[in-house]
Amino acid sequence: ENVVSAPMPGKVLRVLVRVGDRVRVGQGLLVLEAMKMENEIPSPRDGVVKRILVKEGEIVDTGQPKIELG
């Protein structure tokens, strides 16, 4: 899985990584606000952040790609 998608609709509060960052499985990639709760979205695997496809403040839909890992 190279693309991390939104598990639920919500607002991107914070992006916790930058392009080029090495990430580990379970590491937080971003914080999504859904139903007035903050949810940290974890990396599904070890890898390197290739692209960030969302911006802080953006509203995302379920299944929308957010971060691409290499």
Rank of each mutant, 00 (worst) to 15 (best):
A6H: 04
V54K: 02
P42T: 14
K36M: 14
G26S: 05
G57F: 06
G47R: 02
V25C: 12
G10P: 03
L29C: 06
N2T: 15
R22K: 12
E58Y: 06
Q27T: 08
I41V: 09
G57Q: 05
R51P: 03
K50S: 10
V19R: 06
V3G: 04
K55R: 13
D21Y: 06
G70Q: 13
G47M: 03
I52T: 02
G57A: 04
P42G: 10
T62N: 08
V12C: 07
G20P: 01
R22G: 07
G57V: 03
R24F: 13
V31H: 02
G63N: 10
G70R: 13
D46K: 07
E40P: 07
A6C: 12
L13G: 01
K55D: 07
K11S: 03
A34R: 09
P65Q: 07
S43P: 02
L30A: 04
P9Y: 11
V23N: 01
S5H: 12
Q27S: 06
E56W: 07
P65T: 08
E40R: 09
M37N: 09
L16F: 05
Q27C: 06
D46S: 10
E38R: 11
I59F: 14
R14H: 06
G26N: 07
P44D: 06
K50L: 14
G57C: 08
I67W: 03
K66D: 07
P44L: 05
L32D: 00
E68H: 10
G47E: 02
S5N: 10
V17K: 01
Q64I: 07
V60E: 03
V19F: 03
G63T: 05
V12Q: 00
M37Y: 08
G57L: 05
E40H: 10
V3H: 09
V15Y: 05
N2L: 14
P65D: 07
E38C: 11
I52K: 01
I41W: 05
G57S: 04
V60G: 01
G26V: 04
G47C: 05
D21I: 10
I59T: 11
G26Q: 04
V54Y: 03
V25N: 08
E58K: 03
R14P: 00
V12M: 02
I52R: 01
R51T: 09
G28A: 14
I67R: 02
S43Q: 02
R18F: 07
V4K: 04
I52W: 03
V31G: 00
D21R: 04
T62C: 12
P9A: 13
G57I: 05
M37G: 12
R24T: 12
V15I: 15
E38D: 07
V49K: 01
Q27P: 03
E38M: 11
L53A: 03
V31P: 00
